[in-house]
Nucleic acid binder design. Structure first.
Lengths: 408, 408
DNA sequence: GTATTATGTTAAAAGTTTTAACAAATAACC
DNA sequence: GGTTATTTGTTAAAACTTTTAACATAATAC
C-alpha cells in the first residue's frame, strides 16, 4: 500500500492505460518468449483484440518482432511467435574493480554478444577513461557497429551519485569525487551512461534476471565479499537507494564497537572481520594495518590460495576460514533481522569454499536471528562465473525499457 | 524504477485511469482542504471538466461533500469548497502496551472525536478482549453510533502476522501466538480489524500524517525506545515489511557480540544498552537480569524519575543518560548507514531528556557514519503527547481509502 | 470434403481524458 | 447602474482506451 505524494504524483492521461499494458506485454514477452498473441491474451486474462492492438504498436516501433510459426500437433490455426527485438540496439557493461576492469557487450535484452575482456584498472581517472574507451570500441562486434548503442552501464566499488554520475568515494581505487560521467561523455556523446555502486548493481542483476521469474522475490539482499563488503537490497520490488544513494552500507555495522580497527576509521566493523584481507591477515596472525590496505593485497597470497591450503589439510587455513564464516553468519543475522528478506544472494571469492563454511555460517545466523523462520532464510551462492557485477551493469542499461511506468 | 512481476501484475482496464485519478483527487482534497474544483484542476495540471466528472462520482458515493463558498476579494464567480466527507464513518484506534492499553475514536480522516481512555492491560487474552470491547463501546460517542465503523486498528509491542491477525510474539505481554483477530471478531462482526506491530505503526503514522506533506520523505525511520526498541522503516514511500512482516528489528543489532546479555537470548544487542530498563540498571550499577524483565520495571523507579534526578543535579543519573545517549547514537549510525533515510523520528520517554542527551547522540552518530551527509541526518523528536502509536493505529484503518491503486 | 477448433483481425460499443464552447456569478470600471 | 472582465463550473463533442462480438484464416480430425 503506497501513499500518493501530493507534491509529486503522476496523473493518468488518455494514454496511461495503454502505457501500462504495453510494459506488461513487453515484460511477458521477455520472460515467456517465444509466445503468441493468443498466449499473451490468456496470460493477461484479456481478449485477443486488445493484444493485437498493443502488439501492432510495438511492431511499428520495432520493439517486438514476429518469428516462425508454432507447430504443435493441435487442431486450429498455428500461432505466430513473438520475440523482443533484441537486435535493435546493444548495451555495454563495465565492471571496475581494484585490480582489473571487465567489460562485455550484450543485445538489448542483456544476452552476451561479445567475449568478456579485461584490462588493468588505471588509478588516474583520465588514463582509465582512455583505456576503457579504447577497449569498448574494440569489444563491439563489427557486425552490430551500425545498430545504435542503448547505453553504457558502469559498476564501481564505492559510493556513487547516480544523478550526476560521479564517484563520491571508492577506497579500493583511491577515487574521491571523480566525475566519470563527464570524462566518458567526451568519448561517447549522446550515449546514455549509467554509473552505480557494485553492491546495488548485483541486487539489480538478480531482480532483472530472467531466471528469477520463477520465485516472486519482492525483498532480497545481495552480499558480496571481496576487498570490502558490498550489499544491495531490494524492498517491495525496488532497489533501496536512500536519500543520497548510499543505503545498504551494512559492511560497517559493528560486531564489536571496540573491536578490530576498520579501514573506514571506526572499530569493529563487520567488514574488518570478513573481508578477504581480514581472513588472510587472520591466517598470518597479523592485525589489519588501517592505512595500508594494499600491502598484503599486492603480496601474491590470495584468498583462493588460502582456500586451496584449507582443502589440502592446512588446519590453520581452515580455522581462519571457519572464524570468518562465523562472523559472516553473525553479520548476516543482523541483515536478516533488519530486512527479513525472502532470499539472500552471496557472492565473492570466499563462496568457492561454501561447502567448507556453510555449517558455521548457518549456526551463527541461527544464533542471532529472532525467529525460527528468520534463522532458515534461504541463501543462494552466486558463483563468479555468473558475473553478477557485469550482469548488474547490463541491467542498468536494459531494464528501464521494461520497468513499470510511474503512475499515481 | 520497479520491475513488473510477470507472475502477479495488474492489467489496466477501461476504468483504471479513473481509479488512479480518483485517488489522486481524494489525496489532494485531504491534504489541501478546503479546496475548489478549479484549484484541483490547477494542482493536477488538468482541465476543470475532468475534475467535475471525478468529483460528481465522489459526491454520489458520499466520499466528498460540498461546503461553503469562498469569498476572497477577487473578480469572478466564487468557488464552492470541497471536503472529504469525514462524518461518513468512524475509526477506533487501540494501543496495547505492557502496563496499560489506550484507545480513541476518530472520524474517517483520523481526526480525534473522543477522549483518549486507558485501562490496565490484562495478560489473559480473553479477559483482555472483554475489557477492550467494553471500553470501545463506551468510547464511541452516542452522536455517531448510527454511522458505520470503518475499522478497528490495534497496535501491539511485538511481532504480528497481519494476514491472520495473530500476535506471534509479544515478550512484554508474555503473548505467544495469540489470535487477537478471532477473539475480537466475535465481539465486532463485520467490522474490519487491523493488527500491527507498534514500530511499524509509528512509521505509518508519520507517512500518513497530514503535517508530513510538507517534506517529501520517501525514506524514513521511526525509532521508539521504551521497554524494548521498536523500529519502523519506510522505503520508497512504502512500509518495509519483509517476508514474514518482521523486518525492522534493528533493536537486536549487536553493539558487541559478546556484550551485555539481552532478553532475546543473544548478547550485546543495542536494546540491551538503551532500553529504559538498561538505563535504570546502569544507574543502579546492576546488570540486567535476563529472565526477570519485570523485576525493576515493577519497582516504582521509572525512567522519568531518573531524568528528573539528572535535571536536579544527580551526577550519576546524568552519567547513565549520557552513556545511553552514546549507545543510542552508535546504533542510529548503523541504521543510517543501512537505510540512508531522509529523516529519523525518535519517540519514547527518554526523548523528554533530549536537551540533555542530544550532543552525545549526535557525536556518536558522526563517529560511525560513513559520509558527512549521513552524519547530519535530521532527527525529529516525537513527544508522547502526539501519541504516535495511536496515530499509527488510526492510519491502519483510515489510510487504505487514500492509497495508490495497485497498477502494472 | 466437411466439420471442428484455435489464431488473429476488424467493426462497433462502452468508458476514459481532452478540447472547446458556454452558462453562472461576481468584482472592476466607466 | 449598466457594462465589461474574469473566474468558476458545466456540457457537448472529439480523441483515445478497453471490451464485446462477429468474422476471416489456417490448420487438424473425421
Amino acid at each position: 500500500m503506497r501513499r500518493i505524494n501530493p507534491q509529486n504524483f503522476t496523473l493518468a492521461k488518455r494514454g496511461t492505460s495503454r502505457e501500462i499494458n504495453r510494459q506488461i506485454v513487453l515484460t511477458l514477452i521477455r520472460t515467456h518468449q517465444p509466445v503468441s498473441r493468443a498466449d499473451l491474451a490468456r496470460l493477461m486474462d484479456t481478449n485477443r483484440a486488445n493484444v493485437t492492438f498493443i502488439i501492432n504498436e510495438l511492431l511499428e516501433e520495432k520493439l517486438v518482432r514476429e518469428g516462425a510459426q508454432g507447430n504443435e500437433k493441435v487442431r486450429g490455426r498455428k500461432p505466430t511467435f513473438l520475440y523482443v527485438n533484441s537486435n535493435k540496439s546493444y548495451a555495454v557493461a563495465v565492471d571496475v574493480r581494484a585490480s582489473r576492469t571487465f567489460l562485455m557487450v550484450t543485445d538489448s535484452i542483456g544476452k552476451q554478444i561479445s567475449d568478456i575482456v579485461s584490462f588493468a584498472t588505471e588509478i588516474d581517472p583520465q588514463k582509465f577513461i582512455n583505456t576503457l574507451s579504447a577497449n569498448i570500441r574494440k569489444a563491439v562486434p563489427s557486425s552490430i557497429k551500425e545498430s545504435s548503442c542503448e547505453g553504457i552501464g558502469i559498476v564501481v566499488p564505492g559510493m556513487t551519485d547516480i544523478k550526476t554520475g560521479r564517484v563520491l568515494r571508492a577506497p579500493a581505487l583511491g577515487w574521491v569525487d571523480v566525475d566519470l560521467l563527464v570524462l566518458l561523455r567526451r568519448e561517447f556523446e549522446d550515449i546514455p551512461i549509467y554509473i552505480e555502486n557494485s553492491g546495488k548493481a548485483c541486487a539489480l542483476s538478480q531482480i532483472w534476471a530472467t531466471r528469477s521469474d520463477l520465485h516472486t522475490d519482492h525483498d532480497l539482499v545481495f552480499v558480496s565479499i571481496s576487498d570490502g563488503v558490498g550489499v544491495g537490497v531490494i524492498i517491495n520490488g525496488e532497489l533501496m537507494r536512500g536519500k543520497h544513494n548510499t543505503a545498504g552500507e551494512f559492511g560497517h555495522l559493528p560486531l564489536s564497537i571496540d573491536g578490530l580497527p576498520c579501514l573506514c576509521g571506526a572499530n569493529g566493523c563487520w567488514e574488518a572481520y570478513i573481508s578477504n584481507l581480514a581472513t588472510i591477515s587472520r591466517y598470518f596472525g597479523k592485525k589489519i594495518s588501517p592505512r595500508q590496505p594494499l600491502s598484503l593485497e599486492t603480496a601474491d597470497f590470495t584468498i583462493e590460495d588460502l582456500i586451496k591450503r584449507a582443502r589440502t589439510g592446512d588446519g590453520k587455513a581452515l580455522a581462519a576460514l571457519h572464524l570468518t564464516a562465523r562472523y559472516l553468519g553473525l553479520g548476516l543475522a543482523s541483515i536478516i533481522n533488519a530486512i527479513d528478506p525472502s532470499q539472500i544472494y552471496l557472492g565473492g571469492e570466499i563462496t568457492e569454499a561454501w561447502d567448507l563454511i556453510e555449517p558455521q555460517v548457518r549456526d551463527a545466523i541461527k544464533e542471532r536471528t529472532l525467529t525460527r523462520e528468520l534463522g532458515v532464510t534461504p541463501i543462494r551462492i552466486v558463483p563468479a562465473i555468473e558475473y553478477p557485477r557485469l550482469r548488474g551493469a547490463v541491467a542498468l542499461v536494459t531494464s528501464p525499457a521494461f520497468a513499470a511506468p510511474k503512475v499515481a
